[in-house]
Structures are given as structure tokens and as C-alpha cells.
């Protein structure tokens, strides 16, 4: 990697990139590489049978589906919240804006305990839903709610700045041309927001797949039904099966990495398009 042509006027490339790479290697890459090395202790057949075991596969399904739905809900409501925060003025807006960051700060275990207390059949909300036959805590819905809590800031904080910077002219032009407001939204605003929205969704999704602390309390941990993949990693560890645990961890790592890579490539393409404009 070398600074290519132009932009060589500025100093510090070597130092900053060198430090970045060094730091990332020490803190992120080398530790993560340990997962690969540990998994390499397994033969291919052992690895395959570990990561395709029926319970493990069921846990992928639980983790992916709940994270996916939580991501979707967050995409819709996160967009709405960002929209309201950027475009409207109303009392208490600052507080609402700060509230969005709180899921980052609250320890996940506390979030899990608090959500379980609220959505359990004898909790504030759970007791309202129980007579209707809706079971939230100890079901996939409960997991989804915990993941919505965890992922919300990702979507809002990704969409918000883009919405703010969005060229008012495009929008204005569309209105001048007589497009209806709703159509303006669908045809002009949404396409422009799409990359940010996708990024937010994908980050919330990726975070959701790996989430552990908040989910174990509310999920009920029923094998095949509400058992999440990170819990299975913990289960393997409790049985002193390090290689098995890292094998599953490896699958999750690769998925997360690919997902993030796709997002970043997507964004890079969007940036290039705007640059070439």
C-alpha cells in the first residue's frame, strides 16, 4: 500500500497508516487470527460436522432471522426517527436525540434483565399482552426486541447525517415539477438514502447476530427454538471444547467480515459515483 500520485503534499501518510496497521494488527488481527489457528486443530470433517450439527444450524436460523427482523424494524423506525429529528422542530427534541445513543452505553446484561422484566408475563408490558395470547419474553419475539434495542442507534446515526446533507435542490426541483410529496419521498429521497439505510441495517444486523448479553436473559434458550449461536459457543466452552467453540466462532467471524465488506464496497461505489459526477 503506497500513497499513489497526487495528494503527496500532505505529510504523515507513513506514520498514520503505519500506526493504524500496527495497532489494528495488535488489537484486532492477531487476536482474531487465534480463532483460525485454534480451529485448525480440527480436521476438516470434524469442523464440518461441528458447524453443521442440527442444533448449531437451528441456532444460525434463530440468530439470523431475529437479527434480520430486528434490522428491518430498525431500518423503518430508525429512518422515521432520523427523519423526525432532522426535519421537524418540536419540544424535547434534544433529549430524544440523546436517548438514541443510550443503548450503546447501557451494559447489555442490564438491557437484557430490564427488557425481560418488562416483557415477562408478569411485567409491565407482558401482562398486557399475556391475555391476548402474545408471548414476548422467552420467544423469538423477545430476542428480536432485545436486538432492536441494541441496533437502533446504528440505523439512526447512519441515516441522520445523510438526511441532513441531502441536497435540498433535488427535492425542491422534484416538488416544483409537480411530483407529489409521497412520490418525492419514494422517487427522490429514498433512493438517495438507500446506501446509508442499508449500511445502518447491515450494521444492526451484524451486531444482532453476535449479541449475547442481552439476549440470554430474554430468549429462554430452548434448543432448536430460541437458542442463539453465541450461546452455543458458550455451551461448548463450558464443556471444555475449545476447538468446537472456535469453529462456530470462525463461521460467525467470516459472515460478519463478508457482510461488512459488502457494505463498505457498496459505499465506496456510491462515493465514486458522486465523485465522478
Amino acid at each position: 500500500m503506497k500513497g499513489s500520485k497526487s495528494r503527496n503534499v500532505l505529510p504523515g501518510f507513513g506514520l498514520s497508516l503505519g500506526f493504524t496497521l500496527f495497532y489494528l494488527s495488535i488489537i484486532v488481527l492477531i487476536p482474531l487470527a487465534a480463532v483460525f489457528f485454534k480451529t485448525a486443530e480440527l480436521s476438516w470433517a470434524e469442523f464440518w460436522s461441528t458447524v453443521t450439527n442440527a442444533r448449531v444450524v437451528a441456532s444460525y436460523r434463530v440468530s439470523f432471522l431475529t437479527a434480520f427482523f430486528a434490522g428491518l424494524v430498525n431500518a423503518v423506525f430508525g429512518l422515521l426517527i432520523a427523519w423526525v429529528l432532522v426535519r421537524y422542530k418540536f419540544p424535547g427534541k434534544k433529549i430524544i436525540d440523546s436517548l438514541v445513543d443510550l443503548p450503546f452505553a447501557l451494559p447489555t446484561a442490564v438491557a437484557g434483565i430490564a427488557l425481560t422484566a418488562i416483557y415477562a408475563p408478569n411485567g409491565w408490558v407482558g401482562s398486557l399482552l399475556a391475555p391476548l395470547g402474545v408471548k414476548v419474553a422467552y420467544s423469538p419475539i423477545g430476542i428480536t426486541i432485545a436486538l432492536i434495542f441494541i441496533g437502533l442507534p446504528f440505523v439512526v446515526r447512519t441515516v441522520q447525517p445523510v438526511l441532513q446533507d441531502m441536497e435540498k435542490e433535488t427535492e425542491e426541483a422534484a416538488v416544483m415539477l409537480g411530483a407529489y410529496r409521497l412520490r418525492t419521498f419514494w422517487k427522490v429521497i429514498l433512493p438517495e438514502l438507500m446506501p446509508a439505510l442499508l449500511t445502518g441495517f447491515a450494521l444492526a444486523f451484524a451486531r444482532g447476530i453476535g449479541e449475547y448479553g442481552s439476549v440470554v436473559f430474554i430468549s429462554g434458550n430452548m434448543p432448536l427454538k430460541t437458542e442463539i449461536t453465541p450461546l452455543l459457543i458458550m455451551t461448548k466452552l463450558e464443556q471444555y471444547d475449545y476447538a468446537g467453540a472456535t469453529a462456530i466462532a470462525l463461521v460467525m467471524l467470516v459472515v460478519s467480515f463478508l457482510m461488512l465488506l459488502v457494505i463498505n464496497l457498496l459505499q465506496w461505489r456510491m462515493n465514486r459515483r458522486t465523485v465522478s459526477d
Binding site: 440470554v216 429462554g220 434458550n221 430452548m222 434448543p223 450461546l231
Partner: peptide, 11 residues
Amino acid sequence: HVPVLDSGARG
């Protein structure tokens, strides 16, 4: 008949 399998006894 077990509706919730916590990970520990205290849970």
C-alpha cells in the same frame, strides 16, 4: 414441560 432453559441455576 420446560418452557425456559436458563444457562445457570440462579437464572
